[in-house]
Design a protein around this nucleic acid. Structure first.
Lengths: 240, 240
DNA sequence: TAGGGAGACATACTCTCGGTATCCAACATT
DNA sequence: AATGTTGGATACCGAGAGTATGTCTCCCTA
């Protein structure tokens, strides 16, 4: 229905102007595919910027496509909708973060050293506005908590889990996977919160220092118990 | 402009049907004010339910006003918009939670006992779907992180801060307010995250037990160091 | 006790925005 | 050349947040 807009002139500017043409054309991908990939990247680029600056709800698709100099048609060709676009941004930010932390971890063999190095890296990386906004603040709400956790599970949280596993299996007692996950969750939450407090502080430098000292202290206490072979306490007395 | 709908019959059902008439009419409030307060409460009631069930974005104002059997006019008379309505819900849920924890804290004098009791209470209360959804998951995104923290600052977080202050000033060393806040933030984050993992577990009972044991262990390590009078570690070597 | 605020809503409208339907041009394939 | 496929443009739609304005009724005061 609706009068067909077939005679709409289609002023079609030369299209795909100066963009693309990166990656030397050697590979087997056609020019068309290159263009496609480049507009997709452009969309994610702009979306990342706008989501970070104004948040998910306050960022309109019109603004995004305008920024990427395409139209909604292009957007909906590459993504199923606003949420999937957000996911793409989310994954990218996560990947960046994850890589940065992994990098900081290299060069430490002792698990406890690794933990401390990871902590320091995390405190730095969490100050990135993109990570704060996209991952920490809006991730759970936009993706839904379940999907959010699935994503985390495969990146930043995985790192924490690895470290926790390393330091705990180095101890004398053994514990099941569930308990490991629990410890990792707790530390991960502590890190996230700490990171937030750093990022939103008036003086991030000073805040970061405080966070490192505090967490260092807690970890030290933890380490002492673990290395002393102290058993896990039982749950409270209401466990029948 | 626009044709004035003055002749729109106004079918006006008896209005303010069976609701209200709670609180024995002794106080100095007029009947008018009672009615007003009751519709406001009805709005918040319904909003709390729908926000909890479907989330903020997926809950339309139309659904809320329909549930409360009023119109948008009423809603916008009492609240400046959807967000302010959410804030009202948020505050109520927070207050409920806060009160529950405070209650669990009574009857413990030793700060460390208090900490453990508070932990247990928190793990329970965080399983409430309303708290999870409204406060933990959507609070930061909807309110914006700053406003979210301001609110937390005055309720649940305040409790954690109190406890942390109690256990730390009981120790030998002294530390400034900022450092206290940092510790509280960290523990608060750990608690929130732990609470989430409990609430979203297949077996919340078992998850709650694990959380308590893990956090109990961490606290024990913390306590050991504090009571040993161990100094805070310096920050990492890049502090010039 | 009449009347005039003003508070407490109702109704109808606007406008932004996410999503859809449809079309077209540029390649790819035969 | 004919055909299919992909990348993308345009126009449109409906949902829903917010607004403009009217109106009823309680309450207070002269």
């Amino acid at each position: 229905m609706a009068k067909s807009p077939k005679s709409s002139v289609s002023k079609l500017v030369p299209r795909v102007s100066e963009v693309a043409k990166a990656a030397g054309s050697v590979s087997g991908v056609s020019r068309r595919q290159q263009y496609s990939a480049s507009t997709k990247r452009a969309l994610v680029d702009v979306a990342e910027r706008l989501f970070t600056e104004n948040g998910y709800a306050a960022t309109s698709l019109d603004a995004i496509v305008a920024g990427a100099r395409v139209t909604k048609g292009a957007l909906y060709h590459h993504f199923s909708g606003k949420q999937e676009l957000f996911e793409a941004v989310f994954e990218r930010v996560e990947a960046k973060t994850s890589k940065a932390i992994q990098k900081a971890l290299r060069g430490h063999r002792d698990p406890w050293d690794k933990a401390r190095a990871g902590l320091e890296a995390f405190v730095v990386v969490v100050q990135d506005p993109g990570y704060r906004r996209v991952v920490i603040q809006e991730g759970p709400a936009v993706l839904g908590y379940e999907r959010f956790r699935e994503q985390e599970e495969r990146s930043t949280f995985a790192i924490v889990l690895d470290i926790v596993r390393a330091v705990l299996t180095a101890g004398t007692w053994e514990l099941d996977e569930e308990m490991l996950q629990t410890f990792a969750r707790i530390f991960f939450g502590a890190l996230s919160s700490a990171g937030d407090s750093v990022a939103s502080a008036e003086d991030p430098e000073a805040a970061a220092e405080r966070v490192e000292r505090a967490l260092g202290f807690i970890i030290a206490g933890f380490q002492a118990l673990v290395e002393a072979g102290r058993e896990l306490p039982p749950a409270s007395e209401r466990t029948d």
